[in-house]
Amino acid sequence: MRVGLFVTCVNDTLFPETGKAVVTLLRRLGCEVDFPMAQTCCGQMHVNTGYRDEGVRLARGFLDVFAGYQAVVVPSGSCASMIREQYPKLAAGMGASRPGAFASAHGGRSPFARAVAEVTPRVYDLAEFLVDVLDRTDVGAYFPHRVTYHPTCHSLRGLRAGDRPLRLLRAVRGLELVPLAAADECCGFGGTFAVKNAAVSAAMCADKVANVLNTGAEVLCAADNSCLMHIGGTLARQRAGVRVMHLAEILAQTEDAR
């Protein structure tokens, strides 16, 4: 299967190891991975901060770049959710019919809406792609550490990723998965929320960090590096001794590689 990798601007710029891990993992599982160089950003930060026009411009770029792929894999729950859940709403706001009963007065479908309808159903978060498309939970990984998992809001409530990431982690040899209390609660990142409402954001993260430390885990795992940058930055500030790792980086590790 030929897969388009949308690495996301944050991973591209700050967390290249996550992108490399996705490539390693998908190739190991027999996928042909392509990284279209024209990609940049899904537009989430702009749209969610209130700069819709700029965000839509970036969204158009994404749709152009990934129009031809059988599957697009995104190693970020929130970017995947932006594309799959929010693009259709943006399209609706631009004149397409709104889902739900209380519909828009304006019918019709714009070129943007058509592109959204065509591309977004084939966009997957990494865990979804592995479990639903490749039908794999055991990806042959080996990671002999005590790990806890934070599901992140947009995977959990946006994409409805459910227990897919946990099933993947449980199948990793050597890995001890310890449950995280109040896992479904937001860590407080929220994009620009982290700086616009820094005090509340930090208070939310303090509770998340306390729950992480209570697990006694060596590694906090999530499928979104933005949340991990926030939680990990707080852990680092506290010199807590807990590492943060993207799901892809754990799943990419094998016994041979050790």
Binding site: D12, M37, T234
Partner: peptide, 23 residues
Amino acid sequence: PGAAWTDTRDVPPVPAESFRDWW
């Protein structure tokens, strides 16, 4: 404005090479 971030959080290290350059 970045101070609002670093009041409670460290900044991740900037990598020497981006993913796209690596690719």
